[in-house]
Design a protein around this nucleic acid. Structure first.
Length: 103
DNA sequence: TGATTGACAGCGT
DNA sequence: CACGCTGCCAATC
C-alpha cells in the first residue's frame, strides 16, 4: 500500500525543493493533499526526523517570512543558508516572486 | 484515548 | 502597514 503518512509526503516534497528556491508551508500542505494542514507541516518540520534529508530551511511562511528553524536566532542562519543557495531576499523576507518553488 | 500543542493561512480591524 | 482572531490539520504528551 502506498498509503504514506502526511508527514512522509511533506518530507518527500520538501526534499524535492531545488536549490535557490523556497516553498511555503501552505504549498507543501497542498501538495501533500491537505491545503489546510500548513500547521501540521510546520510541526512535522520541527520534529524533522530527516534532518539531513529534508532541507527544512527551504520552507518559509506564506509571505516569504522565515519562521521557526529551532529558535528565533536560528532564523539568521536560515536566511544565510537560503541566501547562499541563491534565494532572493527582500529585506528580512524571501522574494516569493523570484524564489517561490513552482513546478 | 483525550487534550494540548505548533516552524500556518486568511480575513478583519 | 501592523496587529489580532479564527479555522484547519497532524503529531505529541
Amino acid at each position: 500500500m502506498k498509503k504514506k503518512t502526511f508527514s512522509e509526503k511533506v518530507y518527500a516534497f520538501t526534499k524535492q525543493i531545488p536549490r535557490g528556491k523556497v516553498a511555503t508551508y501552505g504549498q507543501i500542505a497542498r501538495l501533500a493533499g491537505n491545503p489546510c494542514a500548513a500547521r501540521a507541516v510546520g510541526m512535522c518540520m520541527k520534529k524533522n526526523p530527516y534532518i539531513p534529508l529534508v532541507p527544512c530551511h527551504r520552507v518559509v511562511g506564506s509571505d516569504g517570512n522565515l519562521t521557526g528553524y529551532s529558535v528565533r536566532e536560528g532564523l539568521v542562519t536560515k536566511k544565510a543558508i537560503l541566501l547562499a543557495e541563491g534565494v532572493v531576499f527582500r529585506g528580512d523576507k524571501v522574494d516569493l516572486q523570484r524564489s517561490l518553488w513552482t513546478q
